[in-house]
């Protein structure tokens, strides 16, 4: 303790030993050791019990983990995630620009859009799009108020479960993405726009070259989150049998009743994909972080391992 150290370093002791012999001993964190040990023992116990539990049927997990049916579902899940995010980000940026527009009608429409798609449950929206054909049996493109028709579709054949799933996920995402993009654009100092304008840059060029690249720094972390979230959210479309990973998993356990093992298969794949998706996010954050004097991104794993010596009593305290 510092107080004791002070007292023992009284002039008499000093004169005897000399100051160069004084060694500072860091605090020993016994509490940290006990907590870490308890947590590890519990974890090992839990994993061991799961591994040995015969009801978990690891053989079933192994049998289905790389099955064709699962890969088909994975493919659908992946393209659905990518397409829904693309639709969401594209439409979301448009809605964000409309919300920042001076035009009151555009502002009102975009606000209404966000209100509607953020204010109703996604599950309701998914089922709605799947059954939207009940609302309009035919869709046609023609000249209004005349009988002239160029193309006509049967809504049922147009709104397949995949299309309904994409529409539901994409439109819902657009509502959330628009708020993220709007916050990003508003985070850029208005002086940047003034400087660009004073150089003769037109509004669209200013937005593209000056404002958006700076807004990206604010937009990317939450959009990365949204992408990872979207990957898992696609599981909802199993309610309209869109043949994604979760739909196919459900098909299997509806027949063989191995619910838990099949859910383990699903969980392992979702975990693997979300882990892989975290990598491009870190890369994008670095790329758009250019010009800011911020410390480099440290991966969670590295943080855990470099933190380990912190438990040991001989290393110095890490700086907060």
């Amino acid at each position: 303790m510092p107080a004791t150290a002070h007292r023992s370093a009284e002039p008499a002791a000093n004169a005897a030993g000399g100051t160069e012999d004084l060694v500072a001993v860091p605090v020993r964190h016994w509490g940290r050791w006990i907590a870490a040990a308890l947590a590890l023992v519990s974890l090992v116990g839990l994993v061991g019990s799961l591994a040995k539990n015969p009801n978990l049927h690891w053989d079933v997990v192994g049998h289905y983990l790389f099955a064709d049916l699962i890969f088909d579902g994975l493919t659908t899940t992946l393209w659905l995630t990518a397409a829904a995010m693309a639709l969401g980000l594209g439409l979301g940026t448009l809605v964000a620009v409309m919300r920042l527009s001076a035009n009151p009608v555009l502002y009102g429409l975009s606000t209404g859009f966000v209100w509607l798609f953020r204010g109703t449950p996604l599950l309701v929206q998914i089922i709605f799009w799947a059954y939207a054909a009940a609302l309009y049996k035919h869709l046609m493109i023609g000249i209004p108020f005349t009988t002239v028709t160029f193309v006509e579709f049967d809504t049922n054949s147009l709104l397949t479960p995949s299309v309904a799933a994409l529409l539901a996920l994409g439109l819902n995402e657009a509502a959330y993405a628009s708020e993220i993009v709007r916050a990003g654009i508003q985070s850029v100092d208005p002086g940047q726009t003034e400087a660009a304008h004073s150089l003769g840059m037109k509004p669209a060029l200013t937005m593209r070259r000056i404002v958006l690249p700076q807004a990206m720094k604010v937009i990317i972390p939450p959009m990365g989150n949204e992408t990872i979230n979207m990957l898992k959210t696609t599981a909802y479309v199993s309610v309209i049998a869109a043949h994604d990973l979760m739909s196919n998993i459900q098909d299997v356990y509806a027949q063989n009743y191995q619910v838990i093992p099949m859910l383990v298969v699903a969980a392992l794949w979702y975990l693997a994909l979300t882990t892989v998706l975290s990598a491009p996010q870190a890369w994008l954050e670095r790329r758009y972080g250019r010009g800011t004097a911020r410390a480099g991104h440290v991966s969670p794993l590295r943080r855990m391992f470099t933190g380990l010596p912190g438990l040991l009593p001989t290393t110095r305290e890490r700086k907060g």
Binding site: D189, A195, S198, G200, K202, Y288, R290
Partner: peptide, 25 residues
């Protein structure tokens, strides 16, 4: 805006807070 931008090209401006573009060298 586009026409204003055209005329602004001939007028340089320096701001109190510099307003350099931070993402460019």
């Amino acid at each position: 805006e586009a026409e204003v931008a055209e005329r602004r090209r001939a007028i340089g401006m320096v701001f109190q807070r510099f307003n350099l573009f931070p993402h460019l060298t």
